Simulated scan of single mutants.
Amino acid sequence: MMVLPGLILVLIFSYYPMAGIIMAFQKYIPNKGLIGSPFIGMKNFQLLMEYPDIGRVFLNTIYIAVMKIIAGLIVPITIAILLNELRKEWVKRTFQTLVYLPHFLSWVLLSGILVDILSPSSGILNQVLSIFGIKPIFFLGENAWFPYVMVISDVWKEFGFGTIVYLAALTGINPSLYEAAEIDGAGRFKQILNITLPGMMPIIILMLTLNIGNVLNAGFEQIFNLYSPPVYESADIIDTFVYRLGVQQAQFGFATAVGLLKSIVSFIFISVSYVLAYRIANYRIF
C-alpha cells in the first residue's frame, strides 16, 4: 500500500507517455493524432543521419557530460577529504551546510544569478578582471567559454551533495588505521594517500561506473536557461536540439526519433554501468 502511490505516478508519468514513441515512425499530424497520422517507417531516422548538425550535437553532449562527470568526482572527493581533516566540528558542519544549499535551487533562479555575475558590462567577475587590465569576456555568448561555464556552474551547484556521499564513505574507515599510521610516523598527507583514498575507493568506483549512464545527459534545464543562438555551435545538446525541433518547429516525428535514439543509447550505457558496478564494486540493484 505504501508503494502503490509512487507506482501509480511512475505508470502515469513514465510509462504511459511511452506510447508517443510511435511518432518516431510517423509523419505526425497533431489534428490526426497517433492513430490517424501516416506511417513512414525509418524515414525520420534516415533524415536524422543526414542532418548536417547532428554530429556536432552529439559531440557537444558527450563533451559537456564527460567533463561534468570528471569534475563532479574530483571536486566532491577533494572537499570531503578537506572537511574530514577539520578538527572543529562546528566549522565542518557550517561549511558542509553552505556548500549543500545550491543543490536545492533551481536552474531558473541560478541562471539569473549567473547572467548578472558574468555580464560583460556590469558583471562582478568582469569588473574584477578589468582591475588587472583584462578586457571584458562574454562568458555566456562565446563558444570558447560557454561549455566550461556550464561545467563549473554545475559543479558549484551539485558538489555539496556529492560531498555528503563521500563523507559518509569516510565514516566507514577504521580510526585505528590512522592511529597506527601516526605511531609509525606518517603525516596527514601520507595518511590521506595510504588510508583515506584507498578506503574511499569502492564508493569512488561505484559512483564513476554509475555515472557512465549519464554520458548523454548534459543538463537540459541548465543549458536551456543559459544558452542563446550565438553559442549553439558549442552549447547545443541532444535535449535542447529535440526541444527546438519538436516544440518550436513542430517537427514532432523527427524530434521523437532523435529522442528515441538517445534513449536507446542511454539504456545501453546504463546497463553496462550497472554490470561494471556489480563486477567492480559489488553493487547490486536486486
Rank of each mutant, 00 (worst) to 15 (best):
I70F: 14
G6C: 05
A19H: 03
W107Y: 10
P230A: 13
I270V: 12
I205R: 14
S130Y: 09
F13E: 13
L34C: 05
G20N: 15
G112E: 09
L118F: 13
I237R: 04
I8D: 14
A235C: 12
E50W: 01
A235I: 04
V115Q: 14
V272I: 15
G123R: 01
I62K: 06
I29L: 12
I268H: 00
P120W: 09
S263G: 15
P30Y: 07
G41W: 04
G219V: 03
L48P: 11
L110G: 01
Y278Q: 14
Y283T: 09
P17C: 10
V99G: 01
E182D: 07
P30K: 06
I205K: 15
E233S: 10
L9N: 01
T61N: 05
T163E: 12
L177T: 10
S37T: 06
G160E: 15
I137V: 13
P76L: 14
L170I: 12
F224C: 02
G33A: 03
G112I: 04
K262W: 06
Q46K: 10
N84G: 13
I79G: 10
G123Y: 01
L4I: 11
A65D: 02
I280V: 14
V242C: 02
G36M: 06
F58Y: 13
I137C: 08
Y227D: 15
G162C: 05
N217G: 03
A281V: 03
E89Y: 01
M150K: 00
P5K: 08
L197C: 02
L276T: 02
F224A: 11
G172M: 08
L193Y: 08
I8M: 14
I29V: 12
N225I: 07
T196G: 13
A168L: 04
G41P: 00
I192Y: 09
S111F: 00
V275H: 06
L47Y: 06
V115L: 15
Q127M: 11
G123Q: 11
N60P: 02
E233C: 09
F189D: 06
P5N: 03
F267Y: 02
Y283C: 09
T61I: 03
